[in-house]
């Protein structure tokens, strides 16, 4: 039987729509695969590590014996490290962003700085580790101390803080600046008293995300030589230290099953710290988004 052109085009249309539906299903399936991977990862780690998680695990130093080992020095080291990184990187990062967005003459130099920062953000973390090794550990003689680690990590996350802060500053409406200028405020007064407070939530979100990246970074710390057996708590910035990701790496790279489970326990501690920080950032963003609307 011969089909009319209309019928033919009808079956053609049905075929095309069927294809589109399948494509849609495929895309949805692939996306949920990503979510499933996250779920598998978290479940796997929890199953492996949960039985080691107790007060003893949090309050013991690392040890050759799995049942005695804990993350005390690593956790304290990470807290030291993050505090020092915050002290160094937040003022410099926010100052840079404020200068580039508000004060600089948007000329050639500002453009060069901008491109440069974008490129710095793409430099692999291990390269920062090598630079930290050459400058801070060897060149300036800070040895394998918290200072070396914190300065190296600060270099690493500065571009992230700067980019996030600039984005936050850009969202401040021009009308606020114009109002300040109209009342006779200088550029600096406007930036300090109006732009900075208005962009504060955005900057804070960016800073928290950057710091949480620093918490998880392992490679630069290995480079500057934090991978040592540390069974004491650092008492000052010049002391040697260990950190959570380093301790985890140490345990994972051992062949024994028990140490792998300890690593999973360490990962749970690390992820709890990270998730708390990320949740805070998302919460702040959510709050401010509502306010702006």
């Amino acid at each position: 039987m011969k089909r009319s052109p209309l019928e033919l085009s009808n079956t053609n249309i049905q075929k095309r729509h069927r294809k589109a539906r399948m494509f849609r299903l495929l895309c949805a399936g692939v996306t949920w695969l990503g979510a499933a991977l996250l779920a598998i990862l978290l479940i796997q780690i929890t199953l492996d590590g949960i039985k080691w998680l107790d007060i003893q695990f949090l309050t013991s130093f690392p040890s050759r014996f799995p049942y005695k080992a804990g993350v005390k020095s690593a956790l304290v080291g990470t807290l030291w490290l993050i505090t020092m990184i915050a002290i160094v990187s937040i003022p410099i990062g926010v100052a840079t962003a404020l200068y580039l967005e508000e004060l600089s003459h948007k000329g050639r130099i500002a453009k060069i700085v901008e491109v440069n920062i974008a490129n710095l953000a793409g430099v692999p973390s291990i390269v920062y580790g090598i630079i930290g090794l050459a400058i801070f550990v060897r060149g300036l003689g800070f040895e394998r101390s918290l200072v070396s680690g914190a300065l190296t990590m600060s270099l690493l996350i500065l571009p992230v803080i700067i980019i996030a802060s600039r984005e936050a500053i850009k969202t401040v409406p021009m009308s606020i600046r114009h109002a300040a200028y109209a009342l006779g405020a200088t550029k600096l007064q406007t930036a300090w008293a109006h732009v900075l407070p208005a962009s504060f939530p955005g900057i804070l979100t960016g800073v928290i995300l950057a710091l949480s990246r620093a918490i998880g970074e392992t490679a630069p710390l290995i480079m500057i030589g934090a991978l040592t057996y540390v069974a004491f708590l650092p008492e000052g910035p010049m002391d040697s230290f260990t950190a959570l990701p380093i301790q985890i790496f140490n345990w994972v790279s051992r062949p024994q099953q028990e140490f792998h489970e300890l690593a999973a326990g360490g990962i749970i501690v690390l992820l709890v710290v990270l998730l708390t920080m990320n949740a805070t950032a998302i919460f702040i963003r959510h709050k401010t988004e509502k306010k702006l609307q």
Partner: peptide
């Protein structure tokens, strides 16, 4: 729902992925 999941995936430290690779 999906965007935050992706952001969490992006925020997981690489040493954790190393553990995942080796043990799973």
């Amino acid at each position: 729902v999906v965007k935050p999941v992706l952001e969490v995936l992006a925020g997981i430290p690489t040493v954790v992925y190393g553990y995942f690779a080796l043990t799973f």
